[in-house]
């Protein structure tokens, strides 16, 4: 058996050359086209996968929206009901407040009108009472009634303090005093009154006598700046004033109660 070294070497070289040639003309182009196709397939697969993912995401989104619809509807209905309830309560409160306010105003107006009516009625009653008393007293013997009142007027002047009496005199000498009486006074009564006034004021008095039937009974001493009244007219006026004031106060208290 003989092994040819040249053949062995040439066959090895031939094989290596064949490896290089097939690599150049077979493997490289075929592997390149396979890789290109695989890349294209992978690209298409990725696109399909992306499309599938997008579809899945859209489906999940739709499913979530579909699931959330009843809850959203209930929430909207509940919100609308709550809003309507709030608005109804507000309207009711406002109407109630307006009604209370109107009622309060009506009550207040009624009380005012009632007080005014009562006041007018009382004034009218007082006027009637005063007129009635005036008419009754006018027929009374005013001379007998005037004299004591003249004494009271003189007493009132005499009971004043020194400075007050000095103020009444106003520095005049004689002091002018106008004596208004409900009925004509006698000379004695006039002289006595002049004397008492002169004694009280500490200087002579020029007394002017005037008759004033409206006084009903009694007198009025008119000094320069002051008047001393002791007459039934004054008494009736004070009584009327006091009665009217008392009635008004009682009416206001009744209204407040």
């Amino acid at each position: 058996m003989h092994i040819d070294g040249w053949t062995l070497l040439l066959q090895a070289v031939n094989f290596l050359i064949l490896v290089w040639l097939l690599r150049r003309f077979l493997y490289r182009p075929v592997l390149a086209v396979i890789a290109e196709r695989q890349a294209a397939t992978e690209r298409v697969r990725n696109e399909a996968e992306a499309a599938r993912q997008a579809a899945e995401t859209a489906r999940e989104s739709l499913e979530a929206q579909r699931t959330a619809l009843p809850a959203e509807r209930d929430r909207l209905i509940a919100a609308a009901r709550a809003e309507a309830e709030t608005e109804r309560t507000a309207l009711l409160d406002k109407a109630r407040a307006e009604a209370d306010h109107a009622l309060e105003e009506a009550r207040s107006r009624l009380v005012d009108e009632r007080a005014q009516a009562l006041d007018a009625l009382q004034r009218h009653a007082a006027d009637l009472g005063t007129q009635l008393a005036t008419r009754l007293l006018r027929d009374a013997p005013s001379g007998a009634l005037t004299r004591p009142l003249l004494d009271e007027a003189c007493v009132a002047v005499e009971s004043l303090s020194g400075p007050q009496r000095h103020a009444l005199a106003d520095g005049s000498d004689p002091v002018p005093v106008r004596l208004a009486a409900a009925c004509p006074l006698s000379e004695d009564d006039a002289a006595r009154a002049r004397d008492r006034l002169a004694a009280a004021l500490g200087r002579p008095v020029a007394l002017e006598l005037v008759e004033d039937p409206s006084l009903i009974a009694g007198v009025e001493l008119h000094f320069a700046h002051s008047v001393v009244r002791r007459s039934w007219k004054q008494t009736l006026a004070e009584a009327k004033e006091e009665m009217t004031r008392h009635d008004s106060a009682r009416s206001a208290a009744d209204a407040l109660a």
Binding site: W6, T7, L10, Q11, N14, F15, L18, L21, L22
Partner: peptide
Amino acid sequence: PVPVTLPVVATWGLMAVMV
């Protein structure tokens, strides 16, 4: 000096066909 044997020639032929 190199003897070209039958397998070498056959291989060349096969190489030509394959390439």
